[in-house]
Design a protein around this nucleic acid. Structure first.
Lengths: 152, 152
DNA sequence: ACTTGAACCTGTAGTTGCTACAGGGATTAT
DNA sequence: ATAATCCCTGTAGCAACTACAGGTTCAAGT
């Protein structure tokens, strides 16, 4: 293996991709990052490819893709000759999840706004916020939320 | 303490509030639910008050309030004579968080839509999705997201 | 009264995606 | 040479549950 000329340490790699060294080591452990080359003393050294890969991962995560989804995307991008229908499928699936989360979230925002505007310094006894949250007939959560619960 | 006439078990309580028995026991353990009365054999029995409390908790959680926030809200609703400015403050603070999350999420949706529309079955090599996620100059995540990262 | 089967119990460990130590060793700059 | 700063491994912690394992109790049917 040839020695890498402009190799950087884990700290700068992390900084360049906008995360922490611990996160990089974590990604290595779970197999997202692959093993880095090491110095004689055992410290990790990275090249530009690692910066690109980590940046990809961070962006995908920022976009809300789960680690499993990122793994899929990475596997696909490692095979450039493959048709990208699968990539498209992953993204489409994710888009659907995002849209349903958006809907729930904006319903929540409206409800919160309503709460805040109706609570004008009266007593807790007559507070709309408590009331709305206690209300058994509330429909937003029950109906809209079968299955699409968590932020991947 | 008087014997509760229409007492229900943990299973039905959970069902009525839309969660699982494990979750109820968890809420008891972390002090959200308070200790239930028990049968001679040691099984938990609940009344209507518990149903209301658990429903409140579940709704607040569905609305994205953190467990700590729910704890605050519960403490407040346990003191009905208190002015509800604090309740209002908690809700307002939460509203802000929700709005920033909404913004990030709809930016994400637009980006995903763009990705999906630009990936029309070509090869991964030229796939916009991979490209966008690898792009170092991407600005959405870096700029908009200092501090408002996680779903409470 | 007895038996079956579902519901319940406690306690512990797993999940996701990191983050934060502790207690050392390596590298770099002066 | 030595100090400052990086880096190493390994482990434990966070939220907010969820899922067992291995045993007990309850309610209903016969």
């Amino acid at each position: 293996m040839p020695e890498i000329s402009h190799a950087i340490g884990i700290g700068e790699l992390a900084r360049r991709a906008g995360c922490k060294p611990e996160t990089v080591r974590y990604y290595e452990r779970i197999g997202l990052m692959g093993d880095a080359s090491r110095t004689e003393g055992g410290q990790r050294r990275y090249g530009e490819e690692a910066v690109r890969r980590l940046t990809f991962i961070r962006h995908a995560r920022d976009f809300g893709f789960s680690v499993d989804a990122v793994r899929e995307l990475l596997a696909m991008s490692d095979q450039p000759d493959m048709p990208c229908q699968e990539v498209d499928a992953v993204a489409k699936h994710h888009l659907e999840e995002v849209e349903s989360r958006l809907q729930r979230l904006s319903a929540l925002r409206d409800e919160l706004k309503r709460m805040v505007s109706q609570c004008a310094g009266s007593k807790v006894e007559s507070c709309r916020i408590i009331e709305v949250l206690s209300d058994h007939q509330l429909c937003i959560s029950e109906a809209a939320h079968k299955g699409a619960h968590d932020l991947g």
